[in-house]
Amino acid sequence: RHKAVFNELVSKLTDICWDKCVGTPSTRLSGSEQSCLSNCAARFLDSSQVVMAKFTKG
């Protein structure tokens, strides 16, 4: 069950971050594309917490 939630989250983040971070696909991801992807995933999780906190305290 946790595995399924994890996989769904990773799929969703790849979908969102791919559009935000990656240009025309070539033979490799550039360094900046790689760090953008990694940061995008981490910042999305941070953003979730900010929005969740806002929903909780109103």
């Binding site: 969102i16 971050c17 935000k20 971070c21 953008c36 940061n39 995008c40 981490a42 910042r43 999305f44 941070d46 953003s47 979730s48 900010v50 929005v51 969740m52 929903f55």
Partner: peptide
Amino acid sequence: VRDKCFEKCVTRPSTSL
């Protein structure tokens, strides 16, 4: 809300918010 707000507010994700 989370998805819409992430889209509009975090345009260039960096090492911290």
